[in-house]
Design a protein around this nucleic acid. Sequence first.
DNA 1: ATGTTTCGTGCAACCGGTTGCAGTCCGCTC
DNA 2: GAGCGGACTGCAACCGGTTGCACGAAACAT
Lengths: 331, 331
Amino acid sequence: MAATIRDVAQASGVHVSTVSRTFSAPHLVNTETRNRVLAAAEDLGYRPNRAARALTTGRTHNLGLIVADIANPFFSHLIKGAQAHARTRDYHVFVADTDEDPQVEEELIQTLAKQVDGVLLCSPRLSNRVIEKLREDVPFVVVNRRMKGMSNVLMDVGSGAREAIGHLVSLGHRRIALLAGPAGSWTSREITDAAHAVPGIDLTVIGPNSPTEHGGLALAEAVASADVTGVLAYNDLMAIGLVEGLTELGVEVPDQVSVVGIDDIVAGRVSRPKLTTVAMPAEAAGRTAVDLLLQLVGAGETATPALATLATNLIIRDSTGPVRHGLRTDP
Amino acid sequence: MAATIRDVAQASGVHVSTVSRTFSAPHLVNTETRNRVLAAAEDLGYRPNRAARALTTGRTHNLGLIVADIANPFFSHLIKGAQAHARTRDYHVFVADTDEDPQVEEELIQTLAKQVDGVLLCSPRLSNRVIEKLREDVPFVVVNRRMKGMSNVLMDVGSGAREAIGHLVSLGHRRIALLAGPAGSWTSREITDAAHAVPGIDLTVIGPNSPTEHGGLALAEAVASADVTGVLAYNDLMAIGLVEGLTELGVEVPDQVSVVGIDDIVAGRVSRPKLTTVAMPAEAAGRTAVDLLLQLVGAGETATPALATLATNLIIRDSTGPVRHGLRTDP
DNA sequence: ATGTTTCGTGCAACCGGTTGCAGTCCGCTC
DNA sequence: GAGCGGACTGCAACCGGTTGCACGAAACAT
C-alpha cells in the first residue's frame, strides 16, 4: 500500500541501507546520493514507519500520559502543556484516561509500556508497590505523588493548603471542614496533613470523596450539618459542586459558609460567587514532567531521578468572607 | 530486557511459532502445550509486543483521536466516550490536541497514520481537500463535518440553532446576534445557515472568532454596541465569556441581553445566570464514532461509509428572558 | 609507487512477532 | 495393512526498518 524503504531504494537505485541512512544519519551519505533518494522518497510519498523503526532502535518517540479524568480542566491544561512541549522535542504524547479506576490504570500502563519510551503518570491512584513493579517495564515520571527513587513533579499543595486555611483563619473562621479527595491520592494526604498541622482550628475531615462536581454536590448536607463556617475542598470541581448544593439548601456562600477550592479552573472564575482557590501550575507541570521524562529516557539506566516542586498560590475571590457570628438567629 | 516470544519458546521447549499461536490462535495448539507455554509466559512476565505484531498483521489495535482543544469540555466528554467504548473492543485511543492549528492538525494525522488503524477527526479545521488527500494514508471518521464519501458523525446542530433562535423569538427577541466559531468549522457554518433561514428576525453575524472563553469575552463590546437583545454563541465557552464581559460592562443578562450557548458543558450550569444552551451528545458521539471507525477498519477497502446524525436539544435556563422594551431608559 | 585514511555504499543479521507450508504422529476406515 | 484425514508443531520467510562490518575507491602521506 504505502511506499516502503525498499520502494524508495529501488526507485533511486541504491540499497535500502542507504535510504535508511538518508533519513536517520544524513551526514553519512553523499550529498548527491542523498538528493536522489530524497527526490524518490518525495515522489513516492514515502514516510518512515515509526513502529518499524522502534522495533530496532527501541525508541518510539512517543510518550504516554495517564490521567485520572481527562474532563477535569486541571488535567486538560497539564496535557496541553505536555503535548506542546513534547512536540518541540519531536515527541508525541498519547493520552489515556483511567476514569479514576486503579485497575484500568494498571492495564493502561502495561499496554502503553511497549508503545512509548516513557510514561507520565499523573495523580496515580495505584499503590506505590504496584507502581514500583510497573517501573521495570517502562521509565516513569510521577506527577503529584512523592516517590523515593523516581522522578517526580510535585506542586506545593501543602503550602497552598496552609495558605488557604490561613486565609480562612484571618477571616475569623475556626471550625473548618476539609473535603478530602479520592483514596490513594497523594495530594489529598498532603492537604490533610497540612491542615492538621495548622494550630488553633477545629478541623473536620470528610472523605474520601469523588473529586468531581457531583462529589461536592453530594457533600452539601454533610457540610451544612457539620457546624463549620469554612471549607477547603480537594479541588475546584468539588468546591463548585458544594457551593451549588449549599445554595440549594438555602445556605449562603460566603455569608454563612466560606468555601476554598484548589486548582484554579475556569469554571471557578465564572461560577457565582467566584471561587477563592489555590492556583496550581498545571501547564508548567506538564512541561516540566516532559523534560524530566526525556532526561530519564535519554540517559537510560544510569539516570538519576529528579524532583521538581512547583509553587502554588492563593487567589482570593468571592466565595470566602468574614465569619458572621450568630448568623443563624439573624432575620 | 523484557521477555520476548523466543524466551518463552526456550523456557517451554517449543518453537516460537507455537508460542505465537498460543496467544493469537489458541485453538490451534494442544491444550497441554498451551498450558505449558502460558505457565512459562506468566513466569517470565511475557506480554506480546504490540508494535511488533502490528508490523506483520497491519493492525495496531490503536485508534487516533484528534481534537482542536482538549481543554474544551465538549471534547473531553467525547474523548471519554470514545476511550471507554474502544476499550470494550480491545482498542486503545490516543488523543492529540491541535491547538486549533490546521498545520499541526495535518502533521499529527501524518504521524499518527502509521501507528493507528484509524483516526477520529473531530471538528477539523483543515480543508476538505487536504482531508481527502490524507485519507489515503489511514481510514477516517470525521466528527462534526459532513464529507461525501466518508463516514461521518454529525450532531444536528442546525436544528438546535433553529430551536434556540425560536426560543429567543418566542421571548420577543427580533434583533439577534450570532457569534460565529473558528474559520473552517463546519458546525459554525451550519449554525449560521440555520440562523439565516429563520424568517422574521434581524440577524447580525459576528466572526469568525476563537471558540473559547476569551473569544467570548473579547466580543462583549461588539455585542453591547450591536443593538441586539438576543445572542446565540458558537459554544458555551464563548457564551460564558460573553456573559462575563457583558456583566463587566454593566449589561445585565438576561434583563438586557439574552444569551444562548451550545454544548451544555458543566461550567454553563454553575455560572450565573445559568446558561441556556443547546445540548450536544458528546459522549454518544465519541462512542458512535468509534463504532463507525472500527466498522471501516474491519471491512478494509470495501467499506461503505456511514453517516450518523445525533439529535440535539435545547435546555432553557436563566440566561434567556423576555425582551423588555425601552429598558435602557428605565431607572 | 606504496601504505594508510577517509568516505560512501552494500551486505546481511537483527528487532519481535505472524503465517503459509510441510512434516510427523495418530486414529480410523475399508 | 494400505490409505486417508485431522491435529499439532516446526521451519523459514516476511513485515519495515536499523546498524555493525566489510569492501572498493579516492585522497592523502611518505
